[in-house]
Simulated assay, not measured.
Amino acid sequence: MRHFLVYAVIRLGLWLLLWWVLALAGVGIMLAGVLAALIAMLLSILFLDRLRNAAALRWKAADERRAARRGPEVDQDAEYEDSVLDDAERDGEIREEDR
């Protein structure tokens, strides 16, 4: 969580700094906000990849731990359909051209 918070705070700070500089330059408040968002996004893609990857890996690891605790997902409908098809196949009801 720490990596994600650091990454988010740095991106927000970068956006605020760029917005303030562009607003002081006379671009206009709304246009400065949009331009600051685009520039901050590009700069974070270029220079904050280590933080972004660390945050993503931590997020992925936490998601995998949650999935492991839940156990395998079982689709009851698919299980039933498979059993009906298996029974039909054993009884010879499924023809070769239906496959």
Rank of each mutant, 00 (worst) to 15 (best):
R2N: 08
A8E: 10
A8D: 07
A8C: 06
R11A: 12
L12R: 03
L12V: 09
L17Y: 09
L18M: 10
L18K: 10
W20P: 12
W20A: 06
V21P: 07
L22Y: 12
L22A: 01
A23H: 14
A23G: 08
A23S: 08
A23Q: 08
A23Y: 10
A23F: 05
L24Q: 07
A25K: 05
G26I: 15
V27I: 06
I29V: 14
M30W: 09
L31N: 10
G33C: 00
V34L: 04
V34C: 10
V34R: 13
I39F: 03
A40R: 01
L42G: 13
L42C: 03
L43S: 01
I45L: 10
F47Y: 13
D49T: 15
D49N: 14
D49Y: 10
D49M: 07
R52F: 05
N53M: 15
N53D: 12
N53Y: 08
N53I: 08
A54C: 13
A55C: 01
A62F: 04
A62M: 09
R66I: 12
R66A: 12
A67D: 12
A67L: 03
A68H: 06
G71M: 04
P72H: 09
P72G: 12
Q76T: 13
Q76S: 13
D77C: 02
D77T: 07
A78K: 12
E79C: 02
E79D: 12
Y80T: 08
E81R: 15
E81D: 09
D82T: 08
S83A: 09
S83M: 05
S83E: 11
L85Y: 01
L85R: 11
D86Q: 00
D86R: 00
D87Y: 03
A88E: 00
E89Q: 05
E89F: 01
R90G: 01
G92F: 03
I94D: 00
R95W: 07
E96L: 15
